[in-house]
Amino acid sequence: MASLITCPHCGTRPKEEFSIRGTALGRPHPAVSEEDWHRYVYLRDNPKGRYQEYWHHAAGCRRWLVVDRDNVTHDVFGVTDAATFGRVGE
C-alpha cells in the first residue's frame, strides 16, 4: 500500500479508501465580490511542500477530513475531522 492515512474515526487506512478534494480553503463571506468567489471556486495555487487538503473518507466513515501533509515527501503531520477544523478556523 503506497500511502497510509490515519483517519481520526477509523484508524490507519490505505489512500484508496479516500477521495482527495483539493485545498482546504476558508469559504469567503457571501457578500464578497464576484472576483473573490471566482478565485475561491476556480483558482488554486498548487503549492509544493506542506499544505492542507480536504480528503473524503469515502469507503470508511464518509466524513470530510483535513489532511495536513507534505506533497513532496508525503509526510503526514495531522488529520482532523473537517467539522472540528472549520470551528477552530472560525
Partner: peptide, 10 residues
Amino acid sequence: STNMLCCHVA
C-alpha cells in the same frame, strides 16, 4: 466493527 474496503467495495 468498522466500514472498510473489501474486494474494492465499501
